[in-house]
Design a protein around this nucleic acid. Sequence first.
DNA 1: GCGAAGTCAAGAGCGGTGCTCTCGAAATTG
DNA 2: CAATTTCGAGAGCACCGCTCTTGACTTCGC
Lengths: 231, 231
Amino acid sequence: MNASRTARERARAELTREIKEEARRQLAASGAPGLSLRAVSRELGMVSSALYRYFPSRDELLTALIVDAYDAVGERAEKADRDAAGDGFRARWRAVCHALRDWAVEHPHEYALIYGSPVPGYSAPEDTIGPATRFPFVLIGIAQDAAVAGGLAAGGPVPTGRLAGQLQGISDAGAPDVPATAMARLAAHWSQLTGMIGFELFGQFANTLDPADDFFAFSVDRMADDLGLPA
Amino acid sequence: MNASRTARERARAELTREIKEEARRQLAASGAPGLSLRAVSRELGMVSSALYRYFPSRDELLTALIVDAYDAVGERAEKADRDAAGDGFRARWRAVCHALRDWAVEHPHEYALIYGSPVPGYSAPEDTIGPATRFPFVLIGIAQDAAVAGGLAAGGPVPTGRLAGQLQGISDAGAPDVPATAMARLAAHWSQLTGMIGFELFGQFANTLDPADDFFAFSVDRMADDLGLPA
DNA sequence: GCGAAGTCAAGAGCGGTGCTCTCGAAATTG
DNA sequence: CAATTTCGAGAGCACCGCTCTTGACTTCGC
């Protein structure tokens, strides 16, 4: 029951880590389509078939990398939120949004892996949806805190019908005090963040809003305005 | 100099079309990574090497499909805009936004091809950027018409510095009367559209805002509010 | 302490891929 | 009709994901 039991188990954990590391290196170099199990094993000085002892298929390796990426971006956002905790809601909002973009710019291929088009034939495995919610819940947390403090905008069109129910479902999961209006805006902002970053990373902004630093900062502030976060 | 000159040229044009058709069929069935030149040629009853007489590489075939997709979505949006021409700016805005989403839902893999993560190693070919601007210019056109008619919101933070220059560059390309404030919002909305559609298509909305019809419609209307388009 | 059970890397091999090159037939051009 | 261009076919290269078998090694139960 020790932290590292047998030598075999330690070696296995170590190799699993090394495989993911090398895979991440290749991912950064040539993107998800260029990730080759054979190349990974070659680089690690082992034969390709041996790698299947650790990951039963290429997709499973990719899934592991996806989960790691979700966790990395989630952790980064949580840390940014904590660091800005004393500076008010708007500062937290800014910090978290820019943390997402910074991470995306640093790891474009990993970003594409989680927020780009799905790689093989759809089928997002079950174990990715947990880590995937980590980042958006940081945004939701800021809204929740602001709502409790009375710093959230009201007014504007109110969601009704099925949409109201869906938004209520999100609220129930961790933001009981955020009204549906704000939750709808939050969801819009969240998708806008990935839209802007996707445009920047994948070259849709070529020759227009490139570099996109100023546009991103401007839009993030406008989102804060839209939510009514106090300056 | 006739419309169809030699028999050889007609046959070549015909085969080129058939190759793209079959490729599009496979694209719809299994996505870009599953598009195989050998499978296409097999389906067309020819040998794989013969296909290289028509497309020098797999990437060139994909580029052709990308250009076609951009044109398809652009044409769809232009038609939607024309059909709503008499119903006011807000109706045009709604029609064009929903045209984009409808096309995306009908052709998810083609949508992923143009607005998802780039397939191989970046390198957007020169001939794609023209068709790529077709859709956003429909949105810009609505804003321009509304600006001329005095139906665009003012106020809010004003872009400055480099961002102002970038936005001016877009204005110069076809919307001289749209002020920088509105242009910044338009760019944000444009990226939000692809963000929302990407979330819906790629399953990021699973178990929350799915189905996304209501959320999309709600957000599109809020964008129109944000632009100040008259109801 | 020893044998059984489990785990591992390695190798060969299958069917698939994109792509290149050569060759002979066909169509176009002069 | 002859020369040139265009084309499909075939063989082949290097790569891919993945499977199966083999033999050595480690771990565990007795």
